[in-house]
Each structure stands twice: as structure tokens, then as C-alpha cells.
Amino acid sequence: MKPIAVKDLCMSFGAVQVLHDVSFDVAAGECFGLVGESGSGKSTVLRCMSLLQGQWTGEVSIGGVRVRDMPLNDRCRMVQMVFQDPYGSLHPRHSVATVLSEPLKIHGLDRANERMAQAMIDVGLPVDFLDRFPHQLSGGQRQRVAIARALILEPDVVLLDEPTSALDVSVQAEILNLLSRLRTDKGFTYIMVSHDLSVVDHMCERFAVMQSGRIVEILPREAIPTNAARDPYARELIGASLAYERAV
């Protein structure tokens, strides 16, 4: 279990600044949510933290070590990410076995077959699915494979970029329960991007509300049902979500 600290994260695409001094702390083993409307920079925060985007300023440290200072291999074994769209995050021509064995080969890990089988069991897929290709799997099964790929390197931190938004509701619940179970079993620290407050309410202890590249307020989970936010935008967002849930 490793804590995360993000301090003054700024990031620009050319002349447009998309992140303005984003700072937050995540305790070891916590699940921290990032919510906000589309384009508010939630996913960009994750891409910066994982160094998929390199041109940012500020400081991101995991377990007290700055991610920029970590050697590539250490960083990969520290941070992994689960992407939003399970239809785009698996290589269409790689079998599940290839998807899971690649990271093991890159990092020279032993007992590859054992680890792959264990990862499949961890995410609740039958081991003989290793022979399958993505187009032979359903959306939920694909997302399970993507989660297996993230956890096969035994990371401490898993970044979840809207892991359920491309799935239908019943499958969403399965994946969320799987993620919760993995967190208790393996002691992951999660940062979860979502635009669905009920998902955040289910998963996260605390969450940050983002608007146009800024964190406007950091709230505990308990603030959702009572709409205890002080910032007007956060109040509006939570109020809209509550109204939507009542309507449904």
C-alpha cells in the first residue's frame, strides 16, 4: 500500500492550459474519486500521473518517491491503469494469453503460466479463456481481462479511467464489486475517474470535483446524499446527480 501526493500539477496542450494547479493527497489503500463534466481534465490527471503525458509541471509522488525519478520498470510495477473502453484497450489481434504474457516478458518475471492463471482467477475468468481473442469476449469479460493485465505486474496504485462507463448497468455492478474485492485482497490504492456519482458513492471514501482543469472542492463520500458541498459548482453537480437518481 502506497500513498499518493499530487502537488501543483499544471499541464498545457500548446497555448491551452488544461490543468491548473491540481493538488490532492490519497492515503495508502484509499479509493479516491475524480468527478466532473466532460473535458474538465479528469482523465488528463491520470495520464499525467502515469506519465503517458510527459509535458506537465508540478510534483506527483507515490510512496514518497516522485514518479519522474522512478526508473521505467519500477514505475510500471508501481502504477497501472484500467482504461475506459474495453473495446479499445485490448489489441484486437492479441489473444488474452498474449495480452497477459507481454508484461511478464518485458519485466522478466518467472512462473509466467502460473501468474497468468492466477490473474485470470483473480478477475473471475475461466483459465481456458487465455486462448480467446478480444472479439470472442463480451464487454464485461474484456474489462476483466484489462483489469487482469493491470494487476499482473502487482502494482501498488491502480488508476481507473471510467472503468465501467462503457458497460451496461448489471455488468457495471459486477466490475465494481470485482474492483472493491481486489482492493481489499491486494491492498491497492485507487484513483477513479467517473462522471457517475453513484459509482463514486459506492467505491470511494473521498472525491474531488473538477471544473475546467481545477479542483473546486474535495469532499468525503458522506457529502453526497446530503449535498454538503460548499462550492456552487460542486453543489450544482451533486444536486443534478441526486435529481437524476430520484427521477430514475
Partner: peptide, 12 residues
């Protein structure tokens, strides 16, 4: 594509 990002995150 996300699968290229995933490969980069694995240290490829």
C-alpha cells in the same frame, strides 16, 4: 489507441 497506451504503461 488505449492498447498502445497500455503497452507503454507496461514498460514496452
Amino acid at each position: 489507441a488505449d492498447y498502445i497506451s497500455a503497452a507503454r504503461l507496461q514498460g514496452a
